[in-house]
Design a protein around this nucleic acid. Structure first.
Lengths: 128, 128
DNA sequence: CCAATTAAAGATATTATAAGTCTATTATAT
DNA sequence: ATATAATAGACTTATAATATCTTTAATTGG
């Protein structure tokens, strides 16, 4: 019952990018790793997933780096969680009691609540 | 971002006990482990934590077993989660950005929502 | 008291996953 | 060409969850 550190890193990296006008300027992972005090290799591995999910773009080579997509304001915290950890299930029932299992139903309901809370949190809300 | 299997086992064991009038009858772990198809040793290890948290009682020896406390109807799913896994934090910020960190604040809010949902789910709701 | 039964405790093993490193490769600007 | 920067893949390390095994303590009934 925990989010990954990788998600934490990603969110902090994104917020840092936003503060540095990362939608118009490319920011190399080097800068981010200094700011967050996380190794460049690991952080770049994390950010690659955000690139794959299309919330940022990357350009290799000199003067390269990561840049926020134009629509970043609408990206939710949940989007980032999914980009990093995949679609997570908070609760996986070890038993197969079918759809009428009330334990499973209760946990699913809690899970849906959590997800909708995280969907309503946009990156923009993290920076204002 | 997951609950433990142990919590799942505990919830299923409790629901089984409720269905078997476990507040008046003692049920040995042997019965539970057959019903859930989980090893007796592991299940008893899990249930011991529920005993320590005082939601069930146990008596050793012949004719012993586990029995629900009288107030079982008011025990919440969250109580069981805490009894098994301890007070969990869904999100532990790797950084020390202080209380004004909006990422942390957002995650905490989501976490509080989740917890209150689980506090509102009582064992009774799982059995009706 | 004795034998059978049952939970608890402690040590240990197993597995799974996250976290992190290292090296090589590919892409880009000057 | 050279320096810079992201990506990919193999690999290691760390950590926690899951599970087993064995011993000990408690309880019942004869």
């Amino acid at each position: 019952m925990k989010f990954s550190k990788a998600t934490d890193y990603a969110l902090h990296a994104l917020v840092y990018m936003i503060h540095r006008d990362g939608d118009t300027v490319k920011i190399p992972v080097q800068d981010l790793s200094v700011a967050l005090n996380v190794s460049t290799t690991y952080l770049s591995k994390v950010l690659t997933r955000i690139v794959k999910a299309n919330y940022i773009t990357s350009t290799s080579g000199a003067k390269g780096g990561y840049r926020l997509q134009q629509n970043w304001e609408n990206v939710s915290v949940y989007d980032i969680v999914v980009a990093i950890d995949g679609v997570q299930t908070l609760f996986e029932d070890s038993f197969d009691h079918g759809s009428e299992c009330r334990i499973q139903a209760a946990m699913m309901e809690a899970q849906e609540n959590l997800i909708s809370t995280l969907k309503n949190k946009k990156l923009k809300d993290l920076t204002v």
